[in-house]
Amino acid sequence: MNNSFGYKTKIWFEEPESDNPFAARKSYCHGYDVYGDILSKATWFEYLYLLFKGEKPSPRQAKLLETLALALTNLGPREPSVRAAMNGGVGGATHAASLMSALSVGAGQCGGGHEVYILMSLWETCGLDLGLWLQKLHDPVEDKREDIWKPMEHAPGFDPNGVSCPTPVKQTLSALARYDENGCLSFLEETREQLEASTGIPLSMTGVAAAAFHALELDAHSATMLFLILRLPGAAAHAIEQRHLGWKHFPFYGAHIELTEDAAHFELPNAEELGL
């Protein structure tokens, strides 16, 4: 057996088929037989929770994760990551490319994955302490070193372009709070107006999602990954729809682009002289 290049993991192990050491006869996730036990007994969200946390969720935790997933499944065709996927789909790009573009655009810190990542560290620091939140939201990232991520331009979890808290955000917060065992979502519900008054902008879906992830006791990496994953179904569905609708029905922004620094004008090469 050559296992000098094997991966170390606490998540997964396999038992091989008797006729092929490269094919798994049984696969175990955190000790549970995936195809012999989990498949017939667990829900997808129980399995997801197990995968990231290492333990089965309580019924309320599973319901909280599922409700959050429902809220994030599709943010609609105006949402930047969904638009990115649609731009892939309309041109007939590979399915993976559409999802990769959704992930890339949806990874950012304006409504995206990295905003959730920053919020998770704030939840770790501030917990249910309103005073700390009011202080930290204005300067949320302690490490000021140069980075691939820009400094935050707005209070994370709040919409820099919002006017008032949108109804779906409030509905999601309220729906999630029913299953919260840690009080994070109730805390957010109760303090929302104070936080909004302090930041000057309304609570956003990233703020609600991060609170739910913290209530589920997920770490920042797991929360960010799940936030990215759970928004992909909408991106996929809209990308497929635009693929079928075709480019003639898709907005082309050419006339919308207003150039402020033009170049000198030149004549095109003469087509006739080129024999064209």
Binding site: N2, N3, Y7, T9, K10, E14, P16, F22, A23, G31
Partner: peptide
């Protein structure tokens, strides 16, 4: 990578 090359240290 064969199944047994996974170095498992979980539960």
């Amino acid at each position: 990578m064969r199944c047994e090359s996974i170095k498992y240290s979980g539960v």
